[in-house]
Amino acid sequence: MGQEVRVNRQARDVRLGVVLYRNSRRELGRLVASLGLNRRSPGVAPFEVMWLDNSPDESLRAVLAELEPGADYRPSGGNLGFGLAHNQLMARAFSEPGVAHYVCVNPDAVLHPDCIRELAVEAERHARTGLVEARMFPDEHPKSYHPVTHETPWCSGCVLLITRELYEAEGGFDERFFMYCEDVDLSWRARAAGFSTHVAPAALAHHYTVTREVSSRREQSVRRSGALLGAKYGNAAFANSCLMKYEELGGPPFSAPALERPARALARVADFSHGFDFARGRW
C-alpha cells in the first residue's frame, strides 16, 4: 500500500495520444487550439501530446508543424486501426515512470479548457480507477451512469483516460478490433479485473456524430467489431446478428471469429441486452 502511494506521488504527468487519419486542417486546428487552452487551465497536470498518423502519406506532418511547432508527430507506416495505434502510443507513454495517465483523444474532438484537468481529478477521486471518459458535448451519450459515484458500465474511447494501474494489469486495447467496440471490451476487462470505470461530468469533449453522413464502410466496420465482441464474450446471438447485418451491408468476406468461453468474471460484466448501446439509456 505504502509503495502504491509512493508510485502515485511520483507519477503525475499525463500523456495524450491522437491517432490521425487524413484529417482536415480545420479539425486539427480546433483540437490544437483546445489543447492550448487546456495547458492554461489552473491546476492541470503537465501533459504532452503524441501524434501517430495512420494516413497513407505524411501530408499531415506539415499541417501539424504549422499548427503546433515541435509537435511529436510520427507516421505509423500504414493504417493500424484505432486500438493497435493507441497501444503503441500507450506503451511509449507508460515507459516513462512519471506518467500516471494516458488519454486517447479522437482528432475530431474539441476539448473543453478544463477537460484534461477534470479527467485526472476524476481518476484520482477513487481507488483502483481503470478508465475515465470525458462527457460528450453538446449531446452527451445517453448511457447510464451513477450521479454520485459517476460509475458507468463502459467508457467511450473518444476521449478516454487509461490509468497506469489498469495498463499494467490488463494492457491496452485488444488489437483484434480494428475500430469500434474495443473501448467496450477494455471497459469490461477492466471491470472484470476489479477496476472501476467512470464518466467525468466536468470534463467536456465536443464530439457530435449523430448527423454524420452514413457510410456503409463505417457500418460494416461497426458490425465486424460487434461480431468479434459477441464471439469473444460467448454471445452467439449477438455475434450472428452482427455478421448477418455485415453481409447485408456488403462487407467483404472475413473468417468469422470463433465463439469463446469467457472467464466467469468477464461473463458477469458483459451486457448485450441493450444492443450496440451496451448499457441502459437515460433517454
Partner: peptide, 21 residues
C-alpha cells in the same frame, strides 16, 4: 414515469427491450 422514477423506468425499458428482441 421516466421523470419521477427514472431507475425503475430504465429497468422496465431494458426488460421490454429484451422481450421485444
Amino acid at each position: 414515469f421516466r421523470e419521477r422514477v427514472p431507475r425503475l423506468h430504465g429497468a422496465l425499458k431494458s426488460l421490454a427491450g429484451r422481450l421485444v428482441r
